[in-house]
């Protein structure tokens, strides 16, 4: 299972959670952090790779209100949409560019 939750303590409840991602690093960690920390309901969001030799990434979300899992889900969903938009725009522009290139020849 790629996502686990860090063992509970007094700082962990529904709205404050640390998720542990296996086989992920700064690539996804930073992307997700940037998206999620911009949400208005999020109090704090940060990530860390505790040790470079272990391919693990700790991802912490603290909410003003609502569930931490929901913010994470929304973040992942937004990233998926970003990918779709990027792909769409790139293909559009790529076709445009090729069309213009053939026209100028």
């Amino acid at each position: 299972m790629p996502i686990a939750q860090l063992a509970g303590s007094e700082t962990t409840n529904d709205s404050n959670k640390t998720f542990v991602f296996k086989d992920e690093g700064h690539t996804l960690g930073n992307a997700l952090r940037c998206v999620i920390s911009s949400y208005p309901d999020v109090l704090f969001c940060g990530y860390t790779v505790p040790h470079p030799a272990e391919s693990k990434m700790h991802f912490r979300i603290q909410m003003k209100k609502g569930k931490a899992v929901d913010a994470l889900k929304r973040g992942l969903d937004d990233l998926i949409k970003v990918c779709d938009v990027t792909m769409e725009k790139f293909n559009e522009e790529f076709d445009n560019f090729n069309e213009q290139a053939t026209m100028s020849i």
Binding site: M1, P2, I3, F21, E24, L28, A31, V69, L72, K73, L76, D77, L79, I80, C83, D84, T86, M87, F90, N91
Partner: peptide
């Protein structure tokens, strides 16, 4: 384009997992 697809599939599988 491959890099876009990779990011997407990565997020999709994590979301499914959640």
């Amino acid at each position: 384009k491959e890099s876009i697809n990779l990011l997407k599939s990565k997020c999709l599988s994590l979301l499914e997992d959640l």
